[in-house]
Design a protein around this nucleic acid. Structure first.
Length: 105
DNA sequence: AGCTTGACTGTGG
DNA sequence: ACCACAGCCAAGC
């Protein structure tokens, strides 16, 4: 378990309902501005084990970046239930993206 | 130790 | 807005 991974877990857990973060954003806060892919790995590998709110983590385009139709529907539904407006699978980052200053460092 | 892969990102056409 | 290309980093073989 790398320090990066632990940081990612802590950050994801600190994301409040009604807000989302991008992979790159989490990576940057975890100490690796270019480590978005590692965030991805941590997410799908440890989300269940740690009970992380993976549905609040999306890509820089404001979309659910994955092809699995079933899971993405679940994610979209979870987001909407938290008050996040999802239109055509896309989220308004300008409104719903969590600001770094509000997260643990 | 080397190569491949991926729920990514930014830049450019 | 969409597609192609190139960087990046850790895990899996």
């Amino acid at each position: 378990m790398t320090e990066f991974t632990e940081r990612v877990i802590a950050i994801i857990k600190s994301v409040p309902a009604g807000k989302v973060v991008t992979y790159g954003q989490v990576a940057a806060m975890a100490g690796s501005p270019r480590g978005a892919r590692q965030v991805v790995r941590v997410l799908h590998a440890l989300s269940m084990k740690h009970g992380l709110p993976w549905h609040r983590v999306i890509n820089a385009k404001g979309e659910i970046g994955f092809p699995d139709s079933e899971s993405r529907e679940i994610q979209m539904m979870s987001l909407e239930s938290e008050g996040i407006e999802v239109r055509n699978g896309k989220i308004d980052l300008a409104v719903y993206q969590l600001q770094a200053e509000n997260l643990a460092e």
